[in-house]
Computed example of a mutant assay.
Amino acid sequence: MESADKGYVTFMDGVRSCLPTVLGYLGTGFAFGIVGINAHLNIFEVTLMSLIIYGGSSQFVLCGLLLTNASIPGMIFTVFLVNLRHLLMSMTASPYFRNESLLQNISLGSILTDESFAVFSTTAAQEKHFTAQWMQGLNWTGYVTWFVSTLLGALVGNLIPDPNKFGFDFAITAMFVGLFIFQFQWELSKSTRKAIVVVITVAISLYLLMIVVSSALAVIIAALLGCVAGGLVHD
């Protein structure tokens, strides 16, 4: 897994690797702060949610459920399904850190996000050398940025009575689109056939599954089917 350069070794290397995704954290976190305030949460509750749940998509979904007076068990189960993809991401990352301590692995997995996983998976696919300290820098930079942006959004949330009017509810979707394009371009450069097969598999299965199951469960199953398709295709 060594490359020609020294790779990604220190905590500061991780901070620098996170910088391209910081704008995504800032924009989405700011939007969530505004949406959270307009879901009748106070600043403390909004920021505490970001510190504890730390999941952009699930936090937006939770705000919507709060506005519809959904039951507590229903909210817990929905957030669990939306965040279930983090289990898959952690399982994918864990073999690279099997020599680290249990506490180190718990720390790495607890604040792993879609953005940091995208950077990690691309780095791993390029067979560049990296360490747990690099991963910590990558994760913690995102975590702190998310908290700060959420706080800023909550502070100005009362000034924007209808965040949907300005498209803030679309922020999380826009971020995922950006991550997808970034990752897909790299996979396409490696294996055109495999990348196309995976995208088609996910798209078709997602469309069909959303007819019979919830959207959150459909995304999880479609992602798993895409992984299977990618594993079966060989160039």
Rank of each mutant, 00 (worst) to 15 (best):
M1K: 07
A4W: 13
D13S: 09
D13P: 08
G14Y: 04
R16F: 14
C18M: 14
C18R: 06
V22C: 12
L23I: 08
L26Y: 08
F30V: 05
A31M: 01
V35M: 13
I37N: 02
I37G: 02
N38Y: 07
H40R: 12
H40T: 15
E45Q: 12
I53L: 10
G56E: 09
Q59V: 15
L62H: 13
G64P: 13
T68R: 05
G74E: 02
F77Q: 11
L81Q: 06
L81I: 14
V82Q: 09
L84W: 07
L87D: 10
F97W: 11
N99D: 11
Q104P: 12
S107L: 10
G109E: 01
L112E: 05
T113R: 07
T113Y: 06
S116T: 15
V119L: 07
F120M: 11
Q126N: 08
K128I: 13
T131F: 07
T131E: 08
Q133D: 04
M135R: 01
Q136E: 01
T141I: 03
W146A: 07
T150G: 04
T150R: 01
T150K: 01
L152G: 01
L152H: 00
A154I: 05
V156D: 04
V156N: 07
G157W: 03
N158S: 15
D162M: 11
K165W: 05
K165L: 11
K165Q: 09
F168Q: 02
F170W: 13
M175V: 08
F180H: 12
I181Y: 15
Q185E: 06
L188E: 11
K190G: 08
K194T: 13
V199G: 12
V202I: 15
V202Q: 00
S205D: 03
V212Q: 06
V213Q: 03
V219Y: 00
I220E: 06
I221L: 14
A222H: 00
V233H: 04
D235I: 12
